[in-house]
Design a protein around this nucleic acid. Structure first.
Lengths: 201, 201
DNA sequence: CCGTTATTGCGACAACTGTTACATTAGGAT
DNA sequence: ATCCTAATGTAACAGTTGTCGCAATAACGG
């Protein structure tokens, strides 16, 4: 006889409460930013008792981790504009918009990844997923003949997007509308010069 | 009669206690990372009463901000290897070493900048100072004829260093010894292609 | 519909955090 | 040396945070 199922009850109330709590987290995040995110406030806004939130999510990091897991369940796809520079510029524009939003939920999630191992792991998985979905941008460019074969897609993508995160998230420089396009153009130039060639080709 | 001096007493005991506390912060940071940094623990290790730390620094962010201010008072200069690629690679190697140290004080300070406006401001000033000192690397390369004049030094430096921070701090990918050199090489290729040209030249 | 029990609500509790008033110490000037 | 007072030490305090045992509720299987 197989083990008679773990006897979990994810239906009805449990699912409803999870949704209420995650919504409350996003709302609190939007209003008070990450620093203002308290277990107490989340529970109150969700109309749930403190103890419930503590029991199911443990701490703020657990809450954010669950939010990140839920955020990964979408059908996002990278832009498809017909050219590499266009795709990268559009992708960077999306990132830019998310980062300069006030307050930025994305920035708050990044901040959270420094305070909780759970959130950090969820964050890493989400990012891995996003970059993997983006690799098609590079393969399409290769097919169009814009790039040499054996181009390291990941390194190219990181070169294109890293300056955005670095300036807006770490350096906290004031937003510059040229940033997305400039970074995209720089990466394409480097790629054309063979900066991301892999193997001995 | 001019105002008779603010009547501060920065000498003797006050200076000594500041040093004790800042040392304690770095020590705690090295042992328990940023999450383990408590006002209580810092005070205890410094042999000072809690109330003193609260009065002078306010909170953890204030402590880190003061550490960052103290960290800026040094005579650091960027590497001078004789070539742009060499300078950037050496610079990136310094950054790499600081970021992969376990535990990394630099990473902890970055994390702190997300939790405290004070620390964030101090961090921004320190970074501004560092990047400014690095601009000589670019001007030397221009003088040597390695780069066209009117090259945007700041954008070049950020393009060279951003991938390091992005991978190691945000993406948390495992350390790769090739990273510093690869990022430096990519930036130089882009620069040679005129990616950072400024003005109409 | 009924019974089992996972899940939540509830309230009390200890531990921790940050503040305050007052006493004590020591820097700096005369 | 002596005085003034800035800076620190001390202890008590309210507010917050996280945990626990127990009662109430509702999901799931029959």
């Amino acid at each position: 006889m197989p083990s008679p199922a773990p006897l979990r009850r994810p239906g009805g109330r449990t699912a409803r409460i999870r949704q209420q709590v995650l919504d409350a987290v996003l709302a609190e995040l939007g209003e008070h930013g990450f620093d203002g995110l308290t277990m107490e406030a989340v529970a109150a806004r969700a109309g749930v008792h403190r103890a419930t939130v503590y029991r199911r999510w443990g701490d703020v990091g657990g809450l954010l981790a669950d939010v990140l897991v839920a955020a990964g369940d979408d059908d996002w796809r990278p832009p498809d504009t017909g050219s590499l520079i266009g795709d990268l510029a559009a992708l960077n524009q999306e990132i830019y918009d998310a980062l300069v939003a006030e307050p930025s939920v994305v920035a708050a999630l990044i901040a959270a990844s420094f305070r909780s191992a759970q959130a950090e792991l969820a964050q890493r998985r989400l990012w891995e997923d996003r970059y993997e979905r983006c690799e098609v941008v590079v393969s399409r460019a290769v097919e169009r003949g814009e790039l040499p074969p054996h181009t390291d897609a990941r390194r190219l993508l990181i070169a294109a997007t890293a300056p955005l995160y670095h300036r807006l998230v770490l350096l906290h420089t004031p937003p510059d509308p040229d940033l997305p396009g400039d970074a995209a153009r720089t990466a394409v130039l480097a790629a054309s010069a063979g900066a991301f060639a892999v193997g001995g080709t």
